[in-house]
Structure formats: C-alpha cells, structure tokens
Design a protein around this nucleic acid. Sequence first.
DNA 1: GTCAAAATGTGATAAATGTTACATTTTACA
DNA 2: TGTAAAATGTAACATTTATCACATTTTGAC
Lengths: 228, 228
Amino acid sequence: MKVDIKKFDFESNRILSSLSKSEQELFIAHGDTLIFKRNKLVFYEGGIPTGDFLIENGRAKIYKTGLDGKDQIFYIYKTGDLLGYHALLCNEHYEDSCEALEDCKILFISKSNFKSLIKKIPHLSQLLIQNMSHEFGVLVNTITILAQKPLRERLALYLLILNKKYVEQGGDIMLPREDLANIIGTARESLGRLLKEFKEEKLIEVDNKIIRVNNHDKLLKIASSVYH
Amino acid sequence: MKVDIKKFDFESNRILSSLSKSEQELFIAHGDTLIFKRNKLVFYEGGIPTGDFLIENGRAKIYKTGLDGKDQIFYIYKTGDLLGYHALLCNEHYEDSCEALEDCKILFISKSNFKSLIKKIPHLSQLLIQNMSHEFGVLVNTITILAQKPLRERLALYLLILNKKYVEQGGDIMLPREDLANIIGTARESLGRLLKEFKEEKLIEVDNKIIRVNNHDKLLKIASSVYH
DNA sequence: GTCAAAATGTGATAAATGTTACATTTTACA
DNA sequence: TGTAAAATGTAACATTTATCACATTTTGAC
C-alpha cells in the first residue's frame, strides 16, 4: 500500500475557508496585517501567546530547537493557514517557534479579539476542534515516519509533500538545505549525499536552491518502501 | 537545561476531572462499561469511530502499524484518561489503533451520546479544545525527541516517563520489551543491549518483565544530554 | 506440572548515518 | 560591484544502530 501524502497536511486553511463570506470578513476585521521579512520570528518557544496568526501571503516554518541547538521543523504553513492558536487555547507558553521562510503578510488576531470571534461565530469552536483532531492524526503519522523509515524514504516522502506545498511555484521547492535536513531529521551532509543520488537517478532536478520533482511515481514508490 | 517529563503527558484525565461532580455523573451515565482483556483491540487504524472511551481501570497503548509491520507506539493511556475522540470529532477514520496493555475496564460513550453530552455540558467543548491544544505540544515534543536524540537518551527519557505512568505500581514498569522498543523507535535487540548497560551502571533494576528505576537523577541527566 | 509457543538474550556482522575538516559556490550588503 | 559571510558540496572516517541466526528463558494453555 502506498503512502498517502494528504495525511501529512494540517489543512489549516479550512478553518477560515469553511466560514461564510460575511463571517470571513468579520474574522479579518478582527485582525491587523503585519509584515514579516524572511527569517523573522513570528513567535518563539517559551513565549507567552498574545494572539494567533492567519497567513495572508507566504510560508512559515514551525520548529523546536533541541538542547544541542539543532532545530526540528515539523510543519510548514502557507497562505490561508491559521496558526498559533494551540498555546493560546490551553493557556500555556509556546511549545514551538515560528519563523517566516519568505517575506510574509500575516494577519494578527489578538487573544481578546479571537475570543470574541469565537463568541460571535458559533461554529468556530467546532471548526477548531475539527482541525485539531485532524492535526493529531497528522502528527501521529509524522512520528511514525520519523521513527521508522530510513532516510531515503523520508526524503522521498517529504519531497512529495513539499512539492505539493509549493504548487503555486509550479512545485519548485525552495528551501535551504539545512531546513530540509531539519524536516526529515538528518544532518545537512547526509541530505546532500542523498540529493545527489536522487539527481543521478533522475528523480529530481536541482538548480541551485530549487529542487524540482521529476519523477513523482518513483518517489512515491520509494516513500512507500516498494522499490525492490 | 533539563528535559521536562511533564511535557510528554497528555493529561487526558483532566477532561473528566475538570467537570463538577454532577457533570461527571452525567458523563458516566452516558456510557457503558466494557471489559477488554489484555492484548484486545479497542479500536483500529482505518476503522470508523462509533464513540470514545474513558479508561476506568488499566492501561492501553495507541500505535500505528508501519508498512513493514512494525508498530510505532506514541502514547500510553491510563486510568481516568478519555481517548478516541479525535477521529470522532473530525469525522475521519481512525488514524491509529488502541490495544489494552492489561485487563481494562473501559467506559464506552457512543457518538450520539458524546454529542449530547457536549450539548448538555457547555464547557466540555472548551475542555476538549484545551486538551487537544495541549496534546499538540506533547506530540511536537515527541517528534523532536525521536528525530534528534540518540537511542540512549531516548531510552532514559522514556524510562522516566513510564516510571511516572506506573506510579500506582510503585513505579515498576511492566511492558513487553517489544512494546518498549516500539515506543523509543528501535529494534528489540538494540533495546536489550542498552537495558543491560543501564543495569550494569545501576541506573535500573530488571526483574524479568519488571523494570525499576533506580537512579532517577542520572537518567534525567542522560535524557537531557548532560552526562559528560 | 508439561510442553509448545512466545518472549528475551547474545554475539557477530552489515548497513546506515553522523562527524570532521575543508573546498567551493552563492548571497547579502556595504 | 567587490568582498566577507553564509550556504553548500565532498570525501574519509567513526559511530551508531539494525539485522541475522541462534541459545535460553518465560509464559500460557491444557
């Protein structure tokens, strides 16, 4: 059986997109648009949440920094996604950090505004519950992959996931090698070796920063451990 | 900085325990007590959720079976915990399986009963949201550990986590080696070797199935990568 | 209690991945 | 546009972890 790439998608854009037109307008009216330049922190591990964020444009990574200083990236949010509400809703400090991967336009909704939105839009709670339930499944899948799959399969899988996430750029993945290494849980050098192999096998094309998926089917087979 | 064991606890018992006495009674009145013998499946990956579960007594593991047949266990629930509501609430199939680790008494709450409970107990949604938000942080921490820490540190950490989870048994961890291996993401043989090392270093005592933590502080240091 | 099946321990070996130490290329910005 | 800093590539080598093939012990069912 083949791996299902959809099972690695939070679908955090569905929270807003499930609202009616007028509710969406109300939602947006409760926020302020902020600009985050590439590499700027949106929030950070240990910080106190003051609101949540809707990405109007761009991509951002969420990650944790390990004790040895190595980052583990566990999700990349993109345009339309709502994020940062977890720590807010359980009244805890941020468990993770968020950083813009490119210049981003982000709508900030303050804690009090978010709470009043939850009151004004009755089924927003329901949507949040649904989304978090779904996220649970995604994280569980992620754990299984990271704990069990060898590097080669993890890379193949995440190239496909990222390919989809960069669909607006024609599927061209543009991510620093270090970030990609921190997604699949390996060292930058090991990643480099594997990328070269994939390139030689004509599964991908690498044009400096850009990684282009050339052979989706074969990568899917590798990701699904059926390349014998 | 030392690892914080509390950050690996779902605290899924807080959902019920946060309710008032009368709400708790209402909750329990909406369920039926079932008996699950050791090794019996409570629900399984791919199945359609029909309700959720409150453990009245015993422990159960949730896990996913990888394509190669190897299980990845990502949480162990115990007495008082409410579980199985994720797939129910996002109307998806179960993403994971649940199996009793010991003979369990489990209260089953059917989907319709759960929904009517959510209506009858207004802040239950709120508690679910809080708990899922918290779970998100736990899973994120789990991912970071599994992806970054070497085996020795992962084992030390999970021995401490399990020690706490078996506190009613005086902290005696009683879990098949294979399950422990599937928690820390390694092979049974590698786990065995490490347990022997820990035993020789007098960090733990092993009495057949039972693993007893002897030196909590030292294990915490190992788990926190500060044993140089 | 007996006995087969399941679980666990052990050691040799192989494979995967990390580490180190640089060379080279690209990028940012003065 | 030049230049230093950052990012990336590369190769040798070390280390960790998995795998294999069994021996041994424990468990559960009769």
